[in-house]
């Protein structure tokens, strides 16, 4: 289920190892430790779960069981463009779940997961405070109200195109410099 760790993440693991030493080796510390790990890495890769298990001298599966019980823990790195789909009451009533499904299908990942290139991640959220616009999805920092299944593809495409443009401009300015 895991993706390759980036260089920064590997470095973060090292400081996590150091940080672990400040905790007593008690099972009761499992959740605070997991929170500390997630603060460093923004998610809990299996390398980190194993490290915590080893430190507390418990089986990795136990760490995994506890971690998966709580909503606050993530097991996939956040994408560059995190997609948050609101399933609060108003959005739910206006079929937010269908919007979620559409994002999941288009990106080929499920709620809580991240695409292999780490570009997109999907998360369901509760009310984001603009129920009048229900159903709502948030991509990055931008709120998209009155979502419709037919809009999903367009939004994702726009991000791809913007990325392309940015890339081309960068190449252009680089070639102009040389």
């Amino acid at each position: 289920m895991n993706q390759e760790l980036t260089t920064e993440e590997k470095a973060a693991l090292k400081s996590i190892a150091k940080n672990l030493e400040t905790f007593n080796k008690q099972r009761g510390n499992l959740i605070p430790i997991l929170q500390m790990v997630q603060e460093h890495l923004a998610y809990l890769p299996s390398e980190a779960l194993r490290m915590v298990a080893e430190y507390l001298e418990i089986n990795a599966c136990e760490v995994y069981g506890v971690a998966t019980f709580y909503n606050q823990f993530r097991f996939h790195p956040p994408g560059k463009h995190p997609v948050k789909v609101c399933l609060g009451t108003a959005c739910h009533v206006r079929a937010g779940d269908i919007i979620l499904e559409n994002f999941e299908r288009k990106l080929g990942i499920e709620d809580g997961e991240t695409t292999a290139d780490r570009e997109f991640s999907i998360e369901r959220v509760a009310c984001v405070g603009c129920c009048a616009l229900a159903p709502v999805a948030i991509i990055g920092e931008t709120v998209h109200g009155h979502m419709a299944p037919s809009k999903v593809e367009g939004l994702l495409m726009r991000i791809e195109i913007e990325k392309d443009i940015a890339k081309r401009e960068k190449e252009k300015s680089e070639s102009e410099q040389t």
Binding site: L49, R50, N59, C61, G65, T68
Partner: peptide, 24 residues
């Protein structure tokens, strides 16, 4: 003394998991 099986996830998604059991 320790189990290699565990309850994982929550609600309808609850399963028994053998996460990393092979390494235990």
């Amino acid at each position: 003394g320790q189990s290699v099986l565990t309850f994982a996830n929550r609600g309808f998604n609850t399963v028994m998991s053998l996460y990393a059991a092979a390494e235990a």
